[in-house]
């Protein structure tokens, strides 16, 4: 029987959650024994090659392409997991939700004290995805099956969650892995 496949993506995130996944250290070898990685920045596969058992979502949706990728994940994955606070609540990028989009762009690309932009207008190449009016957490765009909180979630939490899921076992995380104070 073919190994189940895992896909991962970082939307409006900082890749910190992916770093945390790499922090499972040598256990990544064990993981590679039981799963294949499909679309993911870890193996640089750009498009889905088939149906996946699990999709890990880092980051929320800040622009239209994030939405497209997330919907693509939903179509291809049996189980979708929001990993980390940006996917779950929008996180740091969502701080712009209090500010109108026009003002955000103006400050980031024109008026900001460290900005060097002789053109004086925000970049507008047709290849740049259009921003959304605000940053949306993943579960407001597609249905999400599980949420793993943390900034980032500890490597052990990600490991335990994947092992439980792939073995069809209930996930029983020790308190130490889900407390953040």
């Amino acid at each position: 029987m073919a190994k189940p496949k895992i896909a991962t993506t970082s939307l409006a995130g900082c890749f910190g959650c992916h770093m945390s996944l790499l922090d499972i250290d040598e256990r990544i070898l064990a993981l590679a024994e039981i799963v294949d990685f499909d679309k993911s920045p870890l193996d640089d596969i750009k498009t889905f090659t088939g149906r996946c058992a699990v999709g890990l979502i880092e980051g929320g949706c800040a622009h239209e392409e994030n939405v497209e990728v997330l919907r693509d994940f939903r179509k291809h994955c049996d189980v979708l997991i929001s990993v980390g606070d940006c996917a779950i609540s929008g996180g740091i990028p969502a701080m712009r939700n209090m500010v109108p989009l026009q003002e955000c762009l103006q400050e980031a690309y024109v008026d900001g004290p460290s900005v060097h932009n002789p053109a004086g207008v925000p970049p507008n190449d047709p290849d740049i995805p259009l921003m959304l009016d605000k940053v949306y957490p993943a579960h407001e765009v597609v249905k999400i099956d599980y949420h793993l909180p943390g900034c980032p979630p500890p490597a052990d939490m990600l490991w335990e969650a994947l092992v439980a899921l792939l073995n069809n076992k209930p996930l029983d995380l020790p308190y130490e892995l889900v407390k953040y104070d």
Binding site: V67, L130, D133, K134
Partner: peptide
């Protein structure tokens, strides 16, 4: 499809 009907991409962009 597993999408959220409340999210309207056209409106968001």
């Amino acid at each position: 499809q597993g999408f959220q009907a409340t999210f309207d991409l056209a409106q968001a962009v």
